[in-house]
Write a protein that binds this DNA or RNA. Structure first.
Lengths: 216, 216
DNA sequence: AAGTAAGTTGAGGCATGCCTCAATTTAACG
DNA sequence: CGTTAAATTGAGGCATGCCTCAACTTACTT
């Protein structure tokens, strides 16, 4: 009887390797945050003070970086959802969630790109996305049930909204970093039950449940 | 006394040159429309059945193409504004304008990119943008005065909205080409006077009046 | 039909960015 | 220490896309 090999033994790194890996991760986090998911890998290496070869040694692809970086971000998001779900008022919780989400995007171009569909999630990241999306659905449900969020607002509409805000954030980041808040405020006023007028167009068809991401 | 040299004599082209120019313009319009303002010039040349050298002979820069292409698009927009201003109901006119604008963007990735700030207008194009923007201001004014558009919606907010919609359009174009209409409907419901809640954040600071465009 | 200016061509130089791998350096272990 | 496997290095190959220019072709003039 052999062990059910739990995690397949991530053998220990040599000291220098571990150091370099950490520097690369820091540099990548920083650069993706500043310049988005397309930031050149060569500059990440430069910023980490490491050769391009070493970079590829640790992270064989751009996606490998994402997989190493996003879980932390997504955890912050999950945290945010918890808090929002715990808010005494359903509408307030819903609003707090949106504001928190977009504030995160505004702080991190990489996350903003991710939300704006500029990468294809897989594996661990995909799982986390799905979880996050399902939680957001709860929030929406709750706000709808309380009678404050218009009944025709669906989870899929959250995706569209995120796309929209991502561009506002991207464009205004430097000149007017709070512009997205104003835009969101207008939008939110349209989401209140009292404001609702009938809408003809159906929501986005969602592929898999929680499919927030597709190749660009 | 010398003539006030009206247009500085755009000397006639040789027959083949004129033909090639036309083919290039057609190809560029098509490709920019399909793939956005970053479409490779070499493919434009290929599609026009002309060498890259000839392309540069006629249009020494990417911007030269834009200057040749956009006036026509902007004219369509101007037309749209006329119509909207002539609408019997101010709100309906306002809505028709927005729908028309975004429909144009949805038909043409290049225009969509332009609206989303992905190029720097100059000269003739800039003039046209300014005119267009001033007309849009009239529309907004009119809708506000009629008491249907909330009083705190300003022309600068139109810019933000365009950014927002440009991303929705870009992302949904292939899978759900009408998605932007639904998003816009939500947003519009927030723009009605009745829906308005106070907003803290000020509108975008506009640089020059009508400054819709900045280098990316 | 010949002459010539106008127009066309595409190879090739430049830059950026991805990625590989043979040679070298270095941490870690006995 | 000395050995060796692990890690690092960076030149260089590849691809894309921009742009130029000397050699060639062609439309128009007389």
């Amino acid at each position: 009887m052999h062990q059910p090999d739990p995690p397949p033994a991530p053998k220990p790194l040599r000291a220098d390797a571990a150091r370099n890996r950490a520097k690369l991760l820091a540099a990548a986090t920083e650069l993706f945050g500043e310049r988005g998911l397309d930031a050149p890998l060569e500059e990440i290496a430069r910023r980490a003070g490491v050769s391009i070869g070493t970079l590829y040694n640790h992270f064989p692809s751009r996606e490998a970086f994402w997989e190493a970086i996003f879980p932390a971000r997504l955890a912050a998001l999950e945290q945010l959802t918890e808090t929002a779900l715990a808010a005494p008022d359903a509408w307030d919780g819903f609003v707090a969630y949106l504001e928190g989400l977009f504030a995160l995007q505004a702080e991190d171009q990489g996350l903003n790109d991710a939300v704006a569909q500029r990468f294809r999630a897989a594996g661990e990241v995909e799982q986390a996305c799905n979880r996050g999306f399902r939680h957001a659905e709860l929030l929406i449900q709750r706000a709808r049930d309380s009678g404050q969020l218009r009944p025709d607002f669906e989870a899929a509409d959250l995706v569209t909204l995120s796309w929209a805000m991502s561009q506002v954030i991207r464009e205004s980041m430097e000149t007017a970093p709070d512009a997205w808040r104003r835009c969101l405020a207008f939008f939110l006023d349209g989401l209140r039950t009292g404001a609702a007028h009938p809408i003809e167009v159906p929501p986005l068809p969602q592929g898999q449940p929680g499919e927030v991401t597709r190749s660009r």
